[in-house]
Amino acid sequence: MKNTVTKTQVTHVAQLASLTITEQEAEHLVGAFDETLAVIDNLSQLSLNETEPTSQVTGLENITRADEVLTDNMFSQQEALANAKRSYDGYFVVDRIIDND
């Protein structure tokens, strides 16, 4: 079965990803999604029932370091705020996301 997406799905995904897209972009993205889904569909040809997934390739586990403060990668408050567009009294300023009531 061919995998395709609808414009509604694409718009929903944009919302999930916190992206604003225009109607025209949504239409265009349906085509891009379908093109990509058609390519990646070939994995269904592989028999993978007995295969374990790989999420990382080096096999390293439980990598820890001494429980010491690393001062070389600490920011001062001023440094931390240096790239923020809006700051106030040493804080980052963010938009309200919870309604008043």
Partner: peptide
């Protein structure tokens, strides 16, 4: 970003992401 959001979203993560990770093992 959107394609990744889609392939990781509920109902699709197993179909796409897990399958890809298994094929990675192959």
């Amino acid at each position: 970003i959107m394609l990744g959001t889609y392939t990781l979203s509920k109902g699709y993560a197993d179909k796409y992401y897990l399958t890809a990770q298994k094929a990675r093992t192959l």
